[in-house]
Design a protein around this nucleic acid. Structure first.
Lengths: 138, 138
DNA sequence: GCCGCGGTTAGACAAAGTCCAATCTTTGAC
DNA sequence: GTCAAAGATTGGACTTTGTCTAACCGCGGC
């Protein structure tokens, strides 16, 4: 849960390292994503980015999120069939999902072990293993 | 992977046991779901049910799937942000998801163990733990 | 036969996300 | 700094998945 506040220069460097041109809009979106440790959906990001003055369109938010995802800067979290959440934490970890509140919490993968997984069919590679612990409030 | 073919009477009994009135449409949908061991999305079920002669509407398919889900007859599988899949297998199990083909395969939970899960915050109960192994074809 | 109640329906609607062609920025070469 | 090419952004139309609604159907009980 590094709530690190990235400087403009750090964000620019972060994007350039992935070969991404650091446009104004992308920096705004990166700032929203990386300066807080939440799991945000596209519409929330759109709202946050345009909070002060509207300058980023819906299309750009989606383009940018997909770009960041493809570059491995962020991860998609698929727990709610209604919308995708984006996770700035790219460390191996899993999720606790509160069905009632919609709240998503990280579970570090470090101290977690899964045993007994079957062998993969030949010609397949594991992209990742996602564990979602679905909880309800009593 | 019981590819059991349920008789009409068995399906009726199955629904009645859950207090569900066995209407024609519900039986058709139950038949499609339980007579094959696949993970189907709502639109696929709609198409399959109306294959011979159209007699079930989109609204009824969605109503019925939600009803079956609430009664525990089927499970939702959330792996693809585009659509929910419905799983007639209610035994504890997890999923292998092929990102490229969209194919979903069951992983029995029996021989699988997870250790090191953190304690839940107080006042919360686990509804279920879903593991998704995302694979790619080489 | 008639009533009432649940189930079904078409179609309108909503929300998430994609696509497109026009326009604007960024960048690298000079 | 200037300029052109390449790349990014945009509004709005569109698609897809799923929900809602109000009318309608059908069946059991009387």
């Amino acid at each position: 849960m590094k709530a690190k506040s990235y400087s403009r220069q750090e964000l620019i460097a972060l994007l350039r390292r992935q070969g991404i041109a650091p446009t104004h809009q992308r920096l705004e979106i990166a700032h929203v994503l990386f300066s807080r440790c939440e799991h945000l959906a596209a519409d929330q990001i759109l709202a946050l980015v345009n909070e002060r003055h509207a300058e980023t369109s819906k299309a750009t938010v989606y383009n940018t999120l997909n770009l960041f995802r493809d570059c491995g800067l962020i991860r998609e979290v698929i727990v709610d069939p209604k919308r995708v959440f984006y996770d700035p934490n790219t460390q191996p970890h899993h999720h606790l999902y509160n069905i009632d509140t919609g709240e998503i919490t990280d579970i570090p993968a470090a101290d977690l072990a899964i045993s007994g997984l079957p062998d993969l069919p030949p010609g397949m590679v594991t992209e990742g293993i996602d564990i979602v612990v679905r909880v309800r409030t009593l």
